[in-house]
């Protein structure tokens, strides 16, 4: 099972989410390196030495400069907002005809995965359940909880959604890589929160159909 290292980016939505990570990380590093550079330059260049025994100037304002460092970052964050808006719209887009529909119920400390017209899978932290998804096809999720707030999180798909009691939250995921991935609870829910995991096994569409038949025969 793939777990606890660089995310596999195993869904179509995760590909967009990874773009968001990349753009924001590069922007953050660029800004940090620029400002760190300025801080360190000023900190070293203007330290008190024999050649620099006293401050050279008492100048304390510069209107053009101050306007520039207000407008510049403003433009940057507006650009970042446009990026974020587009990516969120892509990630949260819903399909009209999903290949599978699963209702996830989280509870202390386990998960129930109810497939519409299919099996219901349940497991607790002692014996975590396994969810099976067809690769390349979209699955529609409905997530809720029967006690406290939990969060349905698949780190390899860069995605989580809170499971809130009394409320149903919906989203789609389209796995793009076959394999088994670790899923877990993302919102602190008490004693066994650390152990509240599940597995996501992504298989080929024929394999998925075989699994459905097998489960129906059980």
């Amino acid at each position: 099972m793939h777990a606890q290292s660089w995310p596999a980016v195993g869904s179509a939505q995760a590909a967009s989410l990874a773009d968001d990570w990349r753009i924001f990380t590069y922007a953050a590093i660029a800004v940090a390196v620029l400002v760190w550079g300025l801080i360190l330059f000023a900190a070293v260049r203007f330290r008190r030495t024999r050649d620099n025994p006293a401050p050279r100037s008492q100048k304390d304002q510069n209107a053009p400069l101050e306007i520039a460092w207000t407008i510049g970052p403003l433009i940057l964050v507006i650009a970042l907002f446009v990026v974020t808006l587009r990516i969120e719209n892509t990630v949260e887009a819903r399909t009209a005809a999903p290949a599978a529909r699963i209702t996830v119920n989280a509870y202390r400390w386990g998960w129930t995965f109810s497939y519409r017209d299919g099996p219901t899978i349940d497991g607790t932290s002692n014996d975590p359940p396994e969810m099976v998804l067809p690769v390349g096809e979209t699955t529609a999720f409905r997530v809720t909880s029967s006690d406290v707030v939990h969060s349905f999180w698949i780190p390899d798909m860069l995605f989580k959604r809170d499971a809130v009691p009394g409320r149903v939250s919906e989203f789609d995921l389209t796995p793009t890589k076959e394999g088994t991935f670790l899923g877990r609870c993302g919102e602190f829910c008490g004693l066994n929160h650390a152990l509240m995991t599940f597995r996501v096994r992504v298989v080929s569409p024929p394999g998925y159909q075989r699994w459905l038949k097998y489960e129906a025969a059980q």
Partner: peptide
Amino acid sequence: LMNFLLGGVTGVMVASPPLDFQAQDS
């Protein structure tokens, strides 16, 4: 200055909801 800068730029990162879908509560 050095530390808070990193807190600041990562703050802009987690202010992006799609990024937060992974980062939130992690």
